[in-house]
């Protein structure tokens, strides 16, 4: 049987604003491939993003979507999930968006375990505003607002996501279409808060890492290290090491699913409460609580 939707059905007419050769084109392609593979109705998909180069993703898709405020994609996505649990919700934004201005929302969305797939396109800088240090930039990174070098250590987003009790924590690489598709597909299948860090260097401002230079260094921890994502201790240990790839130019870059477990989602907990109140109370009966 012919599939109902092909990859192209998920693309809007809008051309991305990304620079030529940007690693984000790959993420966009992977997303549409996975949507088509799963044959999700475009009108049952809600792709929510913040502000920044990566957040333009929403506009490039032909699904429903909200291109929101800087750092605020998660609360908006949560609102749509809470009132319509049948929607597939994907949140896409950058490292600055999720982990600088929006980090407060990340903690709570992960902890509450909303069923959504959260994709952080991590280029370790603010690119749209033309090169400033982000929480994931390395120490000493020279951004336009840190001309003498960034003074804080980078945030380990994988370790952080596990600490926030995200129930699916993974990392993939924008240079590997297949790995991205596999990871996004698993993220969408996971029932709960699926966090996916995509290593996606900025071809314009990043003078050290490129897709080509990083590519040979990728090591899938599940395949090559037989990492078991159900083992939390091992997951944390792997996450702690995941930041070390800046140590040298040939240090391995671990990717794969670091941590996955299954606990009820926030939406499921709400459904439980709703089940207990099956009969919808009329307005008149609610009023009785206040009668004289």
């Amino acid at each position: 049987m012919m599939p109902r939707y092909i990859t192209q059905d998920y693309r809007s007419r809008i051309r991305p604003t990304w620079c030529k050769g940007c690693s984000y084109y790959g993420v966009l392609a992977a997303l549409t491939e996975v949507f088509a593979e799963k044959q999700i109705d475009p009108h049952r998909l809600n792709v929510v993003s913040g502000i920044g180069c990566s957040s333009r993703m929403t506009l490039c898709l032909n699904t429903f979507g909200l291109h929101t405020l800087h750092g605020r994609a998660l609360p908006v996505a949560i609102g749509s999930r809470l009132v319509n649990p049948d929607l597939t919700v994907v949140v896409a934004a950058g490292d600055g968006d999720f982990f600088s201005i929006g980090i407060g929302h990340f903690v709570h969305a992960a902890r509450k375990n909303f069923d959504m797939t959260v994709i952080c396109m991590d280029n370790r800088m603010y690119a749209m505003t033309k090169n400033q240090a982000s929480p994931t930039s390395i120490v000493g990174y020279r951004g336009s607002l840190t001309p003498w070098g960034k003074m804080s250590v980078p945030l380990n987003v994988l370790e952080f996501a596990i600490a926030c009790d995200a129930t699916f924590v993974s990392r993939t690489f924008a240079g590997s279409q297949q790995h991205m598709q596999e990871t996004i597909s698993r993220g969408l299948d996971h029932r709960g808060f699926s966090f996916i860090e995509v290593i996606a260097p900025c071809g314009t401002f990043d003078r050290t890492a490129t897709l080509a230079s990083l590519s040979p260094r990728m090591v899938d921890i599940n395949r090559e290290h037989r990492h078991d994502p159900a083992d939390k201790k091992a997951a944390l240990a792997a996450a702690v090491q995941a930041l070390d790839y800046d140590a040298s130019d040939d240090a391995p870059v671990p990717i794969g699913v670091f941590w996955e477990n299954s606990v009820p989602t926030f939406e499921e907990r709400i459904a439980e409460i709703k089940k207990a109140h099956k009969k919808k109370a009329s307005f008149a009966s609610l009023l009785k609580n206040y009668s004289l």
């Binding site: 809600n46 605020r72 609360p75 709570h108």
Partner: peptide, 20 residues
């Protein structure tokens, strides 16, 4: 829904409004 702050509260309200 009790949100983590007022920004998230209005954000969630807008997301829910978008959802109909």
């Amino acid at each position: 829904y009790q949100a983590e702050d007022e920004i998230a509260a209005l954000g969630a309200a807008i997301g829910a409004s978008f959802a109909g």
